[in-house]
Amino acid sequence: MKAIFDERQWAHDPKHFMANGQLSANPEQPQRIEELSRGARAAGCDFHMPSDHGMGPIAEIHSPEYLTFLETIHARWIRTEGASDEVIPNIHPDRRTVSYPKSATGQSGFHQADTSCPITAGTWQSAYWSAQSALSAVDAVLTGEPTAYALCRPPGHHAFGDLAGGFCFLNNSAIAAQALLRAGHRPAILDIDVHHGNGTQGIFYHRRDVLTVSIHADPARFYPFFWGDAAERGEGEGMGYNLNLPLPRGTGDVDYLATLEIALKRIGSFGADVLVIAMGLDTHENDPFHGFKVTTPGFGEIAQAIAGLDLPTVIVQEGGYLSSDLGDNLTSFLNGYQAE
């Protein structure tokens, strides 16, 4: 399987993370790259550098105002007397229709949903090349590869069109799906991260040209809390083109695979001719977020079931955090996908 990654994705090295009022190390660490690379190579992946597709495909998903913010905010932020090394918001608007502030502090609150997406000196470079990796995986599939894996880090599925959140800045899965749509295909996005892909849902919620399906831990007591309920089906032209399948905390292989069948049937009903998998490994029983209890062999079974759709597939890395099992989980998934 062809795999895409750029060394510039190491540059984002966030330190700040707050949960339940306590500061701790940020789980989205650069060391994830080592484990994911090891896992992909163990599955026979051949890594390639991405091509630079420029800003155009990214700007089809994200507003130019937001992209300007991401590219420039760190340099502006650190000019403020007493500012921290990372851009971290301390105030947020109550709605998206408010006035747009000029200050770095105000803009950070407007464009960052929470404190788990601190912006460092290297964030923009890493996020940009993470998106380019997804786009180059699309290129691989469009030129005949049945499946391509994009090691996207930082991840992307919590990023809306003008809002970062949950370790995510550019929505790589959405950018990939839009590129496939532009090439004349009918894409579906299947998000199997333990957290709901709220940014992806938000981007396509009023559209009918991309199907969005997410299997995730019930957000009633789990991040991202405000999105991901089964009643969220889309709006306007998008009504019926979004499917959320929330599951209880602690869900294991058997119940997960049964729910996956529902997702796969919906993708078939949509008539998708290409698939984007927003592939989170944080559903594992030993992941630090402790949402689900999927086993390492379970990832292989999940992958085999999805591969049964027999669709050209772009696999975009989302979550999956540091544990001794992370690389092995990716190996299991990629081997399972190739076994079908």
Rank of each mutant, 00 (worst) to 15 (best):
A3R: 10
A3I: 12
A11Q: 07
Q22H: 04
A25R: 08
R32I: 05
L36C: 10
R38F: 00
G39F: 07
C45F: 10
D46C: 11
H48S: 15
M49W: 05
D52F: 04
G56F: 01
P57G: 10
E65Y: 05
E71Y: 04
E71L: 02
T72K: 15
H74R: 11
I78S: 08
G82P: 06
A83D: 04
E86C: 06
I88S: 09
I88P: 05
I88R: 02
N90R: 11
I91T: 12
P93V: 11
D94M: 14
D94G: 07
R95N: 15
A104W: 12
P118V: 13
T123K: 09
S126W: 02
Q132D: 13
S133H: 01
A134C: 01
L135P: 08
A140Y: 03
T143P: 00
A148H: 03
L151H: 02
H157A: 08
H158F: 12
A159S: 11
F160Y: 07
L170S: 12
N171P: 10
S173T: 07
H185Q: 15
A188G: 06
R208N: 15
S214Q: 11
R221P: 00
R221I: 01
F222E: 12
F222W: 14
W227Q: 07
G228F: 05
R233L: 13
G238N: 12
L245C: 05
P246I: 00
G250M: 09
G252R: 14
D253H: 04
Y256G: 02
L257E: 15
E261H: 11
I262W: 03
A263N: 14
F270L: 14
F270S: 09
A272M: 11
D273T: 05
L275E: 07
L275Q: 09
V276I: 13
M279K: 04
H284S: 09
N286S: 09
F289A: 05
H290C: 02
P297K: 01
F299L: 02
A305V: 06
L311W: 09
L311F: 11
E318K: 12
G327R: 01
L330S: 13
Y337D: 00
